[in-house]
Design a protein around this nucleic acid. Structure first.
Lengths: 189, 189
DNA sequence: GCAGTGATGGGACTTGGTCTCATCGACCGT
DNA sequence: ACGGTCGATGAGACCAAGTCCCATCACTGC
């Protein structure tokens, strides 16, 4: 007989998302979350550094993206390397079974400034990771910075569309499509 | 005889910057800041919604930028409109006498995650404002989003160089220069 | 004078977040 | 079977951020 129920972080994250949807982020205390998960405040902060972080699991995405950029064919240009990485992300992380959860989560994030703020920071750090990964491919600095930002834009567009129900396409193809559009728009500048 | 010393927000901001430099952001209490400014915690929160915001005055920059984009010659392309706006910003806001302060402030921001987070949010909101301003010029959505992000990159590069002492150039010319470089890098993609 | 205004002070109160110590089943070696 | 360590949890004190409400008191206009 296990002494504790398994996966405390997962239970906390699920409880948090539920409560944030029900009563909003600022009307939910950490104690509320912990109690719904059958735990205590102490345990919450043992698994998450702060209240916001409960909606930003692991950070595995950054690792996958960097890995994807690194393993793109060496002939690929910077933006194509990013596109390959987004494609890989679609296969390993933004899978169909995660779509509903992602949508709920995103709706909560969008509704609360404090959470948007954390998301903004994550995006910046992630862009920095992309730039580094491009540097390791030998891409010169400025080109890398441009490519990373355009890549982030492509990601954003594709992610929005992916979450938006009523379309059954996978994340990868949506990213390819978004990239083409961004390229077309960029050419006009 | 005035009952209170003038410019409470300014005194609070100055005190905060001093203290953050001296002991770091997290080792500085709001009460510390207020006391150094000859005020109290109550008054601090009457002028700033939270501790971080004391380093992000007014938000006049967003307004100036939007205004600059709007008043660019109608023949100008989106990126050129942004460049014009940055130029105007250099004349009205990022003036030489503000450079030292900006450098100190930025060093503090870079050193503390909590402040970087707030800065990240401001940047996103500002990018959104730029996109809106471009829309009002009739720029199609995707083009606007690309231009706004590249504009933000140009800003970032120019701002870093401007703060970096040992160069006496104004913000405007630095922005023009950065824009040219970004354009060159973007063409290669 | 006298009432209203507006920036400030004071202090109670909630919540996020840190820290330290206690608990107690599982596991391991003997 | 026994005893000791380990690891995830609980309990609660404590500090700082942020909210709220009420008091103060020079200045202003009537």
């Amino acid at each position: 007989m296990a002494r504790w129920q398994p996966d405390a972080p997962g239970r906390l994250a699920a409880a948090a998302l539920d409560l944030f949807e029900e009563r909003g982020y600022e009307n939910t205390t950490v104690i509320d979350i912990a109690e719904r998960a059958g735990l205590t405040k102490s345990t919450f902060f043992r698994h998450f550094p702060d209240k916001r972080e409960v909606l930003f699991g692991g950070g595995t995405v950054a690792g996958l993206l960097v890995e994807g950029i690194a393993s793109a064919p060496s002939a690929a240009g910077p933006l194509d390397a990013v596109a390959d990485a987004l494609d890989a992300l679609g296969r390993t992380f933004f899978t169909a079974d995660r779509r509903e959860f992602s949508g709920r989560r995103q709706a909560v994030l969008n509704a609360h400034t404090e959470l948007r703020e954390r998301e903004a920071l994550k995006r910046i750090d992630l862009t920095a990771s992309m730039i580094e990964a491009l540097h390791r491919r030998g891409v010169p600095d400025l080109t890398a910075r441009v490519a990373a930002r355009l890549g982030a834009l492509v990601w954003e567009i594709a992610y929005d569309r992916w979450i938006d129900a009523d379309n059954s396409e996978g994340f990868g193809p949506l990213a390819r499509q978004a990239l083409a559009e961004v390229r077309a728009a960029g050419a006009v500048r």
